[in-house]
Every structure is written in C-alpha cells, then in structure tokens.
Design a protein around this nucleic acid. Sequence first.
DNA 1: TATATAATCTAGCGATGCTAGTTTGTCAAT
DNA 2: ATTGACAAACTAGCATCGCTAGATTATATA
Lengths: 190, 190
Amino acid sequence: MGISERKTRERSERERRIIVAARTIAERDGWASVTIRRLAEEIEYSQPVLYSHFENRDQIVGAVALEGFGELAAMLRAAIRPSSTSRERVEDVATAYLDFAFARPAMYEAMFVLPTGLRFARSDTPPQLRDGFGAMATVIAPFAQDVDTATETFWAALHGLAELERHGRIRPAFRAQRITLVMRMVSGQL
Amino acid sequence: MGISERKTRERSERERRIIVAARTIAERDGWASVTIRRLAEEIEYSQPVLYSHFENRDQIVGAVALEGFGELAAMLRAAIRPSSTSRERVEDVATAYLDFAFARPAMYEAMFVLPTGLRFARSDTPPQLRDGFGAMATVIAPFAQDVDTATETFWAALHGLAELERHGRIRPAFRAQRITLVMRMVSGQL
DNA sequence: TATATAATCTAGCGATGCTAGTTTGTCAAT
DNA sequence: ATTGACAAACTAGCATCGCTAGATTATATA
C-alpha cells in the first residue's frame, strides 16, 4: 500500500509548508500579517484546507512555537562548554537565552506571549517544551539545593529581561551588567 | 464662559467613562471583548465618538494601562513599612508586585503585554510610568552599587515570575521560594 | 432670523477567523 | 468499463472587527 503512504507523506509535507510559511511571514512582517488567507495563498490551497491540519490559527502559532522550543533548547545546550567553570556555564546559558530572544523576536513572541494552545507540565507535553528547562537546570544544579525552583527563578529572570528589553523598558546597554546580577542570584557570590 | 468649561468637563467625563468601561469589560471578559462597538454601546454614543477621544483602540488600552501603572506604584509604596528591615522591604515589595499581577491579570496584560502606544524613557513620559520603578529603586538602593541596573534586574525577575506563572509554566505553589531566591540576588545573602 | 461651525450619527469599506454546502477527484464493487 | 461511495478540496458567505467618509443634527455667532 504505497499509495496511502504517499498520501500521508504529501499531507505532512503540506503541513510543514504551512508552518514554514507562518514562521517566515511572522519573522518578516510580524504575527498580525500571518492570516489564514495569506497562508492559503502561500501553499496554493484554499483556506479550509488549513483547518484540516490545524484546529484554528492559534494552533498554527503553536506549531511554530514548538519548533522554537526545540531550537532554543539546542542553542542553550550548545552554549554549555565542557571546559568552562560552573559559573561560566550559567553565564553562557543566560547570554545564549537572551541572544535567542533578540535574534528571533517573532519566534520568542510565539513561544511566550501569544496564545498557542500548547500545554505545559502535563503527561502529553512534547519533549521540546521540557528540553530547554532541562538545559537550564543542568547549569543551575551545581549551585542549587532545590534545582527545580532555582531553575524556574533563573528562567523567570531571563524571560523578564528579554521581555522588558524587547518592549524598550530597560536600557539595552546594560544587558551584561544585569546578567551579572542574575548570576549572583544563582551562584550566591559576586 | 462657564459653558465651554461645562463642555470640556462633560467631555473629559465621557472619556473617563470610556476608560472605565474598557477596564471593566477587560477584567470580566478579557481584552478581546473590548471592542469599539461594545464601548460605544456602553457609553451610549456612536462609534466615531471614541475616535475623537483616542486615536485608535491601542490608545484606549494604553489609557487603562496608565491607570494601572499609577495603582501599581501606589501598591508598591504602600508595601514599604518604615518598621521593616531593608531586607523585609524588598520582600514586601516583591510580594506586592506579584499580588498585583495575579489579582489584576487583565490590567497587568495591558501594562506589559498588549500594544499601548505608551512611550517609556522619554521626556514626555507620564509620571505613573516612572513611579513604580522609583518605588522599587527605593528598596533596592541599600543593596546596590548601581541602583538603576539593580532595579531593572529586580523588576525583570518579578515580571518574569509573573508572566511565567500567569501562563502556567512554573509551579504556583513555589512562589514564595522563588521570591526568596530573588532576594538573594539583590541582597547578596541568603 | 440666517448662517457658520461644531458635534454626532448613519452607513459602509476592507479586512479578519471560520464554516456550510457543493463540486471534484479517487477508489472498490459490479 | 460503469457505477456508486467516500474522501478531498473548493466556492461562497457569515459574523465580526477597526476604522472612516459623508450626511445630519445641534449650537453658537452675526
């Protein structure tokens, strides 16, 4: 039965094209420009076809966000060098996190601001949503008694720094100094 | 010329009614339900009247947010008790900040997530936008060399905690422990 | 009282997300 | 090969949105 396999393959390829188109448009023109009509035009199918792949627009944003979580996790893991000290690793992960947020603002928005229908902290939560947290926990662990809580707080600090700077409410020039202060929080030393 | 005074008074009263209606609807049904048509119905005027008060919908959100910044600043200042130690003051302000965020999620959203057209860090920035920062700086100052940077980082940590918890990505039960960790960041001691 | 100006309204434009109902295509059974 | 059943995709349109042009009413001035 190679025919039905071809069909499911073509179907998943079309789904990928939708996700890629959504991401491309969002990164170029912002999420407000990612409309069902525009996506339909991009993949050269009519609009209702999109609803056979995704329940609604939010789920398309969610699919892009899911990719983003995978990429963020990879970036954070790549920032952890074996030759570094524990302290340097925390700093490198923090810097990598903020680099990601500022380099891909639309992606970051999908992951953390827009409604996506993604469900966290559940049994069916996809691994991408856990991996980034895991990478942060890895570098936080040497300093923490309660690793989960410390990682949550570390993550929150980074997220806050990203969001406030992205909205122009704190001074971009002082990013490095703020990271230093966050370091003190987790490492307990200046 | 009491007539024109009455007119400007009535006009500003109508503007207040718009803001109050927007806030009320947002807190009850969410910002998506705050439509121009619904606001017009609420104040019993036609839709174009709203555009004689505000340039667009975002500016209405901004007007509500501005109120929120004033109220947040007042809450933070009220949390600073003269009898407390410097350390307790930081903790009380942090707790008050998160209490505000969770007690008024729609307001917090207007202040920090939605587009508002508000302009920060400019010469014409209204005082409400500075006061909250000032309150935080007051309690951070005893611990910091660079007060502004330390306050920015403190603020970012609180904002991150608020946002991640609001989106269900960190555990509500561990809020107090996370605040303790933030305290260590600013006070340099456990 | 006539006229100019301001205030407000009606009506509608161009979008949006989403869907009902119809047409087209693709199989299996006759 | 023909027919009928089912799946896939399309056309067309609904309700709603932010926003605005142009008509209409009220108000103030001459």
